[in-house]
Amino acid sequence: MKGLNISVLVKPVPDPGCYESIQIDPQTGILVREGLPNILNPADKHALEAALQLVEQHSGRVVMVSMAPPNALETVKEGLAMGADEAWLLSDRAFAGADTLATSRVLAAGIKKLGLCDLVLAGSESADGGTAHVPSQVGEILGISHLTNVTWLNIDTDANVRARMKMENGYIEVEGALPMVIGVSRGMNVPRYTSLPGILAAQDKPVKVLGLNNLGLDPGSVGLAGSPTQPGKLSRPELKRQGERLEGEPAELAKRIVAIMRSSGVLS
């Protein structure tokens, strides 16, 4: 095996620290997300870290592929600052409103267009939608094998892959061969911090923006039109409860809590 060509799928997402300030417009019922700062999806940073470590080990090249609006370019470039070699931004009005399957079609088309790709890595799930669908669906569309929720990964010089897939009470060990799509779990590694030399180098790395026509996709297969699922109304979950304040010294407070435990049937 002569070096690894790795694509890393990345998604700019609104900063999870700001999700509590997300509002639904009462008139239109649409999500008000303007002004929320974008970050690279946290799990994707773990995927990128895995890619960088593999290239340090095997040599090769790391290209990020992202489906996002053009204004997300600066966020995607943060991955270049972490160490990726190149970024492809798949951007077209026609892609808007895509569900995970329509998104996966675009991402798969981008990867095909890149040519020669041994391994596709992605964060197992995104912070905003959180479906965890994309790694598996990209793998299906590309017609190559795929695994997700991977916590440990080893690739030898003959392109054999060994991986551990996280299960509820342990893991399943899986063997296969490249090419493959792998959804990286956050437990796999700790992403490196962005360094100042990395930021400076990122400014000159190649960035390509490709649209529907460049990718040779049918407009009916992408965006809202190409999505088998369609969104309906949005709402906010009601979590509030009528809180009764308990006051007093610790001994008194504990006594009240014991009484509550009794009345709720967990203490006899």
């Binding site: 569900d99 995970t100 399957l101 996966s104 939608g129 959180g130 479906t131 965890a132 669908h133 994309v134 598996s136 669906q137 793998g139 299906e140 569309i141 795929h146 695994l147 997700t148 929720n149 897939m165 996280k166 299960m167 509820e168 399943i172 959804g183 999505s227 088998p228 699922t229 369609q230 979950p237």
Partner: peptide
């Protein structure tokens, strides 16, 4: 939506070309 279900469901949905909603409440 166990660890395996989270992988099996989108795999199947892509094979069948159908829609999938994740982590329904």
């Amino acid at each position: 939506a166990s660890a395996s279900g989270e992988e099996l469901a989108p795999t199947l949905a892509a094979q069948l070309g159908t829609g999938l909603a994740a982590h329904c409440t």
